[in-house]
């Protein structure tokens, strides 16, 4: 793979086998198998999506609910393995797939920072060096020794964002997370993402806030029902996407 390419997704297809009824025990499985009732409904979450992201690019992914955006992110970060197609990654990924991934809600902020670091594969010394920055950025200094279960969702989001961005990943994945914080924190996050971008980090953003995507991204991928509709520069794709949104809104 060429050195300046961070993520390369080629013709990816992902199907979920959804059994019409859930089979959880051996007896059920055998009974159903013998009766020939073991049907699966195939659900195609993604089909034929390809995208190449260069180092330092910021890419937005737009689409309606259930269009396969999160599935694509999961495939890129290696959580899901696609049924068909190829994914190549160049660099350290710091996934922000969802709120509170890798947190233990019983533990305190301090313990969670180190736990989350080790989940991402960083050792204690590495995290200790960044510990103060993380606390300051998340504005959680007074709550250093409070268990996370007592936090509001905004506080958890702040902490997650602070950890994921302060470890300076090569690839940062942001899934709707910016929607949780208040306006002030959102601004701070956007500033931070801009900083990372100028530092050469590749950023992938999923958001329904189309203005945000227009502000931050250099390239946008639009998927609908698992199919790739459009891939191109931000202005063109966003305009088409907004037009479709308006049309559907009028229909309803």
């Amino acid at each position: 793979m060429e050195a300046d390419i961070a993520v390369k997704v080629e013709d990816v297809k992902m199907c979920y086998n959804m059994p019409t009824e859930r089979v959880d025990s051996i007896k059920e499985y055998i009974v159903k198998l013998l009766r020939g009732k073991l049907h699966y409904r195939e659900f195609v979450a993604l089909d034929g999506v390809s995208i190449t992201i260069k180092r330092g690019e910021t890419v937005g992914i737009v689409g309606l609910n259930g269009s396969g955006k999160s599935t694509l992110l999961k495939i890129i970060s290696g959580i899901l393995k696609p049924d068909r197609g190829n994914v190549e990654i160049n660099g350290v990924i710091s996934p922000l797939i969802e709120l509170g991934a890798g947190f233990d809600f019983e533990l305190t902020t301090r313990e969670n920072i180190f736990l989350n670091g080790s989940v991402l594969g960083f050792d204690r010394n590495f995290m200790r060096a960044r510990y103060d920055d993380i606390l300051d950025f998340a504005e959680l200094r007074p709550y250093e020794d409070v268990a996370i279960k007592n936090f509001s969702s905004g506080m958890v989001a702040r902490l997650g964002f602070a950890i994921a961005t302060l470890v300076k990943p090569d690839i940062l994945i942001v899934d709707e997370i910016l929607a949780v914080g208040d306006a002030l924190f959102q601004q701070k996050c956007e500033k931070r993402i801009a900083e990372l971008m100028s530092g050469g980090t590749t950023v992938i953003i999923v958001s329904h806030a189309i203005e945000q995507i227009e502000r931050l991204c250099t390239k946008v991928l639009w998927i609908d029902k698992g199919k790739q509709i459009m891939l191109g520069d931000t202005a063109t794709v966003c305009e088409k996407y907004k037009m479709l949104g308006q049309k559907r809104g009028e229909l309803n």
Binding site: I79, P95, I97, E98, L120
Partner: peptide, 9 residues
């Protein structure tokens, strides 16, 4: 499951 679903490892 909480971890496996959200983070690769």
């Amino acid at each position: 499951s909480g971890l496996i679903k959200k983070v690769y490892m």
